[in-house]
Amino acid sequence: MLAPPHAAAQHGPRPLPLFLDLVREQTRDDLPRRARILEGLRAYQAAPRTGRLPKMPVIARAGRAMLRHYGGEGPPAVFVPSLINPPAILDLSEHNSLLRWMAGQGVRPLLVDWGDPSDHAPAQGEDVFSHASLLLPLLDQLGESVHLIGYCLGGTMALAASMQARLLSLTLIAAPWHFAGFGEQARAEIGALWQAARPSAERLGLVPMEVLQTGFWRLDPARTVAKYEAFSQFEPDSEQARGFVALEDWANDGAPLTFAAGRELFEGMIGADVTGRGDWHGVDPKLVGVPTLEFVSLHDRIVPAPSSARLPNQKLLGLGHVGMIVGSRAREQLWEPLAAHLSQAQQS
């Protein structure tokens, strides 16, 4: 029997009832496929968990934002994750961690941890740009120039911080900037979702993870259900199955957004494309004055390639939005080129 709707904390897509509606829509004329998807969902919910890696030490704070230190030697390389889903995607497991690998590549990787706005009532008025501004005092506490690497919406914020921070280089990974590149249909569907959720979110002062995840599902509904169908065929004790469970647990977790950040993301960025139009606090990709690298995937359904910042030094990938960080080809296509870029930037 499937877990009840409140079982998100017990492992399952959030929110489960809407996920099941999506399964019905995608399998309307294929009941055997529907059964396989539901079998995969049950297997995922029942799969054993090994627990997440312990959080690394905090070496700097600014408001609720923190910098966590991952060891290594050399100049600091600060990784800025999105506000959506936990930052653990960059440190997914002992054998699949971009941050732990980077610690052996001649830099000192540090991870921005945004904390949980529901634990900090004054933070509920912080929009996306306010979060980007929090990066500046964090970086200042390091007392030296840094490599700044932003993933997804973290890249958008890293680009904003680069206008004032002391940097050695700036790297964007699947970072949205020209939100018109999402396409009219996707923007309209996400906008409708936001309008339905906005009154409740405004009362709460927060945008629950369920709203954000539903928005992601609408960007790629076919893949959302297909991955559970594939999981139904995995050997339960295989490395492949363990990797799927770790990744889905990450995808189904996450703190809420502040209402102000949600409003700016859905209305200002996705709705009005303020960044792509050059109307976001004077931030302009053309004004970045340090070596840059932008990873853009032609297969990214979450942040499609036309939405990139279009920095002059781009590396095009054939991986998915998450696969470029933790997939089987991530080390070859992203980790190693990133390490080479940072090394070259230090010498320039």
Rank of each mutant, 00 (worst) to 15 (best):
T258K: 01
G51R: 05
L18R: 09
V23N: 04
G143T: 07
Q344M: 14
E332T: 13
H321V: 12
H69A: 14
V283C: 13
F295M: 00
R187N: 15
E126V: 12
R187E: 14
G51N: 08
T156P: 02
A43I: 10
E73R: 11
S82N: 04
L83G: 05
W194V: 13
A3G: 07
P137S: 06
E229G: 13
D300I: 03
L293M: 12
H6V: 01
A230V: 06
P306Y: 03
G282C: 05
P13M: 12
M56S: 11
M269E: 05
T214R: 15
Q26E: 14
N252K: 09
R198G: 03
A77Y: 08
Q195W: 11
Q240S: 13
R100L: 10
P337S: 12
E210D: 15
F244P: 00
R68N: 03
Q213N: 14
P285A: 00
L167A: 04
E294C: 02
F244S: 12
V107R: 08
V80D: 06
A132G: 08
D119R: 14
D127F: 04
H178D: 15
P4D: 15
A8Q: 03
F19C: 03
T214L: 13
A330W: 06
L247S: 09
H131S: 04
A340M: 11
R331A: 12
V146C: 08
H131C: 10
E239V: 04
L110P: 01
G72I: 05
A260I: 09
A123L: 00
P291R: 00
H321P: 06
G115T: 08
R203A: 15
P109E: 04
A339W: 06
T50R: 13
V80C: 09
S238G: 12
P137R: 02
M324P: 00
V112D: 10
L41T: 03
L148K: 03
L134K: 04
R100T: 08
L168C: 07
F266M: 15
E229W: 03
A226D: 14
G155N: 05
G72A: 08
H178E: 15
V107Q: 10
G72C: 06
T214D: 05
A35R: 06
P54G: 11
E264C: 05
A88Q: 11
V290I: 06
P236F: 06
P221K: 02
L257T: 08
H147P: 01
G262P: 01
L316V: 02
S118L: 04
W250I: 12
A230Y: 03
A103G: 09
F244N: 10
G243V: 04
T50H: 09
V245S: 02
L338E: 07
Q164N: 13
P48M: 06
S307L: 09
W114Q: 13
T27M: 10
E294T: 02
L219R: 14
R263Y: 11
S307I: 08
A8C: 05
G74N: 10
G205R: 02
I59G: 05
W250H: 12
G215P: 01
M157R: 13
A47C: 10
G262F: 08
L138R: 00
T50K: 07
R203I: 14
E94G: 02
L90V: 10
V288I: 13
S328H: 07
V78W: 06
H69S: 11
A246P: 00
M163Q: 14
P199W: 02
Y44V: 00
A47H: 14
G51L: 07
K286E: 12
T275E: 09
Q314G: 11
P122Q: 15
V112A: 08
